[in-house]
Design a protein around this nucleic acid. Structure first.
Lengths: 194, 194
DNA sequence: ACCTGAACACCGTTCAAGT
DNA sequence: ACCTGAACACCGTTCAAGT
């Protein structure tokens, strides 16, 4: 821990605060205190609070991209790869809801043309590649890959977001994100490959 | 406007501020100023800032419930009703992104057992009824209604949320929420009715 | 190069008063 | 019953210094 540079320590502290108390808990004063510096020391490493949160998001996008790439390069069957990718994504969302929201539901952070948008796109490309393999193997219908990837991604995102918001208490049937995605894949795989 | 009671005026001002500047623009000082009262007059009508936002959410949930009910009671064919309900929902999300987020992506507001949860559930029930009609008419597959409703709702929610967050710039294929939902319905309707 | 402390302009919220 | 004004404890951010 002490071997890390101050900026890495600040990012780690911000990520930990997101997990423990949500976005509102990530005050520069709390981050500074966790690292043992003053409340405005972060300004020496990041432009402002948003830039610090963007750094957390950047690390998590990189992690997801690597996870997807690893699954894609594995020797599993296409549909199994897709299921594993979805499972990894859902589990990340469940374990780190505030960080998940930071990546996919924070309009202010995703500056167009910025580094964050590029790395976010990379993770999407990896996911799209996995979907493409399932299409090539005729496990998923032969519609444009971008459209199908968008559909699958939006669906899993909606499920994770609703789950994080606790919107699935009464509305049974939304019981499990994993189960609902399995239903979706089952239904569309029956649609035939054109 | 002047004929409205103060509490209604406060709710309307909060909704307008959500539309014009997002959640962070809804400060009690700004709300008070818009109505012509002091910054803590709202406390005489609502417990706190959260309760004022919950009142805005309550009104919008009621509006959506009524819109869904009207579509459901219309004489259109089941699949047309579903398309119209999705269209109304998507357009609400596009026109009022901050208010949409208030309803469906604000974990802190949806207190379990509260009035807000009840009215939110009512809108979901209306939507589920429309899905059920499309299943009864064999336009959608014969899987448990709650599961299919959950899938459709999560998907449209994910699309609206990603669109509101501007996450569909690079990721083409997510081009339009309406188009993606049409693809989803097309694919699952091909799955047959059991 | 990296950090601190005071200061400023904003918040939500509380409280004692005012009519 | 309904509202105001001052006050408090928090923010993010800036700035002049310190080492």
């Amino acid at each position: 821990m002490s071997g890390m540079s101050t900026d890495k320590l600040l990012i780690a502290a911000a990520a930990a605060l997101l997990d423990s108390g949500g976005e509102s808990a990530v005050t520069l004063r709390a981050v500074g205190a966790a690292v043992g510096v003053s409340h405005n020391a972060p300004y020496k490493h990041f432009k402002d609070r948003s830039a610090l949160l963007a750094a957390v998001a950047n690390d998590d996008f990189t992690m997801l991209t690597n996870a997807f790439a690893k699954i894609r390069q594995s020797s599993s069957k296409p549909l199994i790869k897709l299921q594993r990718a979805l499972k990894a994504f859902i589990e990340y969302g469940q374990k780190h809801p505030a960080r998940y929201r930071l990546l996919y539901s924070s309009p202010d952070l995703a500056a167009p043309g910025g580094d964050l948008e590029k790395i976010a796109f990379q993770s999407f490309v990896e996911f799209a590649g996995i979907v493409q393999e399932a299409q090539s193997s005729k496990d998923l219908p032969d519609v444009p890959n971008a459209a199908l990837t968008g559909l699958l991604f939006a669906s899993v995102h909606g499920l994770i977001d609703l789950e994080a918001g606790g919107l699935m208490r009464k509305e049974k049937g939304l019981s499990s994100a994993t189960g609902t995605m399995a239903l979706l894949i089952d239904l569309i795989s029956r649609a035939g490959t054109k």
